[in-house]
Design a protein around this nucleic acid. Structure first.
Length: 425
RNA sequence: GGAGAGCUGGCUGAGUGGUCGAAAGCGGCGGUCUUGAAAACCGUUGAGGGUUAAACCUCCGGGGGUUCGAAUCCCUCGCUCUCCGCCA
């Protein structure tokens, strides 16, 4: 959520900044509502003040044994008037709030202009894509030939966009999770965290998935309004919802492995083959809660932490600065890490690292107490994948494939796989 | 599943219809004392909105109701705890 005062006081600037990311804000409508709100709020508060003072007087008079009937007559219709005013105010505030909750974050000044992924800016590359002296296979062919990756069985059990794995691939999948958790908790200073995979609507509103993106989520058909998490970002960031954090606890850095569940509504026909886009996938997520002044340094750090995973796995990648039009709803700035996928002869997203500034913190009232002023201030939140496990597995399979269809195990993973050096039939 | 108790400021916790945004303690901040620190003592200290500043308004788990007036009474939902039952 944007700062309502910013919207009130600098509406034109906000409208312009939102246009940069392709969002049309109905300026006139908002202004009209805001003016009405102001007027009705003032009137409501006057009525409330009148009620408070008159009630107080009645109390005093009664205590002194005076006849209070005339005073009661005087306030007879005040209650109804007040109730009507409050109802009107509530309706207006709900409407304004709905609009506010649907407005995306403003892009940071350093974010490149642009409409879509064509306009993203490549910042740097690491590693040299390997040249193969045989025809490369994609991970689906490799996995099925190994007999360790089975999409048909998964489709029988559930439906499309799921996978069954076993043996070496299943183990490497697990090894990746352990490796990433260890790296970030032991070397990068993150606190390993375990969280619920089912969350309530408040949590999803806090991080920005609701109210606008409900169709991307799996909603449980339960008595409570519960959803499967689309990313660990939701439960982990909401750890600080409705709290005032002591300054000495900042920055807070969490690393958390969870499965992620996405309905992928609206992505029909995209990446239908293989493990690139699944309804269920594992991800190791990095989340930071920091002071406002630190958040852009934290974004660089968090991105570097995610990059380190790719470096240790010796996977070639590039770093993209997303343009304003390609960024997610809540982000002020986003770097995507894209890993080299030989079968597609291109780089594909494997991590997305974003600074949300105070956008999520304002929605979830996540604050810290500034000792200099003694006042609570909104925190800044960030997160990034470190990394998406399924896609990492895909990248390893394809980049480390051998002519005979076996897959060499990256050195850093061998200890996590009981010394296994190669995956074959 | 059944019965009961509770949810109050950063934290603990008092408050059962009016002068309560709310005692007390802890913690925080400022000061006295001290070479410095600790201890002790004194003062100060909830959040949000509003205003040049004030006035004023809202908030005692969420929502609704009763009342001139609600932290306090009623309804409802959520959560926590205790006991019983059931299951692992």
């Amino acid at each position: 959520m944007l700062d309502p005062r910013l919207i009130r006081n600098e509406l034109a600037t906000v409208v312009k900044a939102l246009a940069a990311r392709g969002f049309q804000l109905d300026e006139g409508h908002l202004q009209t509502l805001e003016e009405q709100r102001k007027a009705i709020q003032a009137r409501t508060q006057e009525l409330q003040a009148e009620r408070n003072s008159k009630s107080k007087n009645i109390g005093k008079a009664k205590a002194q044994g005076e006849d209070i009937q005339p005073m009661l007559d005087e306030v007879a219709d005040l209650g109804d008037k007040l109730k009507a005013a409050e109802a009107e105010l509530n309706a207006l505030q709900d409407e304004l709030n709905n609009i506010l909750m649907g407005i995306p974050n403003l892009p940071h000044e350093s974010v490149p202009a642009g409409k879509n992924e064509q306009d993203n800016q490549e910042l740097r590359r690491w590693g040299e894509p390997r040249s193969f002296d045989f025809e490369v296979k994609d991970h689906v062919d490799l996995g099925e030939q190994l007999g360790q990756m089975d999409f048909e069985t998964a489709a029988k059990i559930t439906g499309s966009r799921f996978v069954v794995m076993n043996s070496g691939l299943a183990r490497m999948h697990r090894a990746l999770i352990q490796f990433m958790l260890d790296l970030h908790s032991n070397e990068h200073g993150y606190t390993e965290t375990y969280v619920p995979y089912v969350v309530n609507a408040d949590s999803l509103r806090g991080t920005g998935q609701l109210p606008k993106f409900e169709e991307d989520l799996f909603k449980l058909n339960a008595e409570q309004e519960y959803y499967l998490i689309p990313t660990a970002e939701v439960p982990v960031t909401n750890i600080v919802r409705d709290t005032i954090i002591d300054a000495s606890y900042l920055p807070r850095k969490f690393v958390c492995h969870t499965p992620c569940f996405r309905s992928e509504a609206g992505s029909y026909g995209r990446d239908t083959r293989g493990m690139i886009r699944q309804h269920q996938f594992e991800k190791v997520e990095l989340v930071q809660v920091v002071k406002a002044e630190d958040s852009y340094n934290a974004l660089e750090q968090l991105t570097a932490n995610a990059e380190e995973v790719l470096k240790r796995l010796q996977l070639p990648y590039r770093v993209m600065a997303l343009c304003a039009g390609d960024m997610g709803f809540s982000a002020a700035k986003t770097y995507d890490l894209e890993v080299w996928i030989p079968s597609q002869n291109t780089y594909r997203e494997i991590s997305s690292c974003s600074n949300f500034e105070a956008f999520q913190a304002r929605r979830m009232q996540a604050r810290w107490r500034n000792p200099e002023t003694g006042k609570p201030e909104l925190a800044h939140t960030l997160n990034g994948s470190g990394l998406a496990v399924g896609r990492t597995l895909v990248a390893i399979m394809e980049n480390y494939q051998n002519k005979d269809g076996s897959i060499t195990v990256p050195t850093v993973l061998q200890n996590y796989m009981g010394g296994m050096e190669i995956i074959n039939i």
